[in-house]
């Protein structure tokens, strides 16, 4: 019992992080129909920025947890956002009117560039951050117990509030309305006076910001990272986005949580070796019965 509960908690934290990163894939896909393969590496860059900001803060003698976490989140999100903007401007915007696959290849190239750039700039060794928040939460259930570090609790709270804020921005603000309008019909939106190029840039910034949030949380929790962490988590988050229905914001979050839970429960109850096989198998099965993902709109075939 306690073990199942612990696995649920594990899955939920992992899934919430997948969800945060999946948002970036799904929004970009929704608006310009491209798979942004460099997104996982944006997350990786944000992990490095987190460590650098933390080192700077401790250099200036700031050690109180709320202040440190606030500054780290703020600075990392801003700087990673700028990365998102720059990447879009340099590698994708010149390809706006070309074939569908050209930006995809450009994104793969960008992903290689980011990885190697960070490796050259910061070295190949894995890096770490000190533990900020000590202590654990332990709930006894029967003979066993469920144990959560405070950091995990913080991840859950921060990830879900991040998603809440994003949903609010997309649903309620002018910016969000413009995003949705551009997503539905780019030509029409631009006729109505929306600067669609700018909106697309904002979408990249938002995606990068969410990846940065995930980057800060994960980095603080695991305490270590290297320049290669973006790849595996990127593929998983993309899977989550497709699972939920690519292009759908709530879908990405739901997909992330489902994928996290599925991995956790399968490896906990069955076998760790085949957990990724199970995850992809689940995806294929869902897509066979719902070809547009869980919450995606079915593609309309016009005749």
């Amino acid at each position: 019992m306690d073990i199942v509960l612990q696995q649920l908690v594990n899955g939920l934290t992992l899934g919430s992080v997948y969800g945060l990163i999946a948002v970036g894939y799904t929004m970009v896909y929704g608006i310009i129909g491209m798979i942004n393969f460099a997104h996982g590496d944006v997350y990786m860059v944000s992990a490095y920025i987190t460590a650098i900001v933390l080192a700077l803060l401790s250099f200036f003698g700031i050690h109180s947890f709320p202040v440190v976490i606030l500054f780290t989140l703020l600075l990392t999100i801003i700087i990673t956002g700028v990365y998102g903007w720059t990447i879009e401007r340099v590698a994708y915007r010149p390809l706006r009117n070309s074939t569908r696959l050209a930006p995809l290849i450009s994104a793969i190239g960008m992903s290689l560039i980011l990885q190697n750039y960070v490796q050259i700039a910061q070295g190949a060794r894995s890096q770490g951050v000190p533990t900020l928040l000590d202590g654990t939460l332990r709930m006894h259930i029967g003979d066993g117990y469920v144990q959560l570090t405070y950091m995990k609790v913080f991840i859950l709270v921060a990830a879900f509030s991040g998603m809440g804020i994003l949903t609010y921005i997309i649903q309620k603000t002018t910016l969000g309305r413009m995003c949705r309008a551009t997503q539905q019909d780019r030509k029409m939106a631009s006729i109505l006076g929306i600067n669609t190029d700018r909106i697309i840039s904002y979408v990249f910034v938002i995606g990068a910001a969410m990846a940065a949030l995930a980057g800060v949380l994960i980095t603080l929790d695991y305490g270590s990272f290297d320049f290669f962490v973006g790849f595996v988590i990127g593929v998983k988050a993309f899977t989550a986005a497709v699972l939920g229905g690519i292009g759908s914001l709530p879908g990405a979050m739901l997909g992330g949580v489902i994928l996290g839970l599925a991995e956790s429960l399968f490896s906990g109850l069955v076998n760790t070796d085949y957990k990724d096989v199970f995850a992809f198998g689940l995806l294929v099965t869902i897509l066979i019965f719902r070809p547009s993902g869980l919450l995606g709109k079915p593609a309309v075939e016009k005749v």
Partner: peptide
């Protein structure tokens, strides 16, 4: 006796299983 995937960082599920 189980294997984990190189390049991943989250082994919480495996850890819980080890505990169990």
């Amino acid at each position: 006796y189980e294997g984990l995937t190189r390049g991943e960082k989250d082994f919480n599920a495996l850890v819980t299983k080890i505990r169990a």
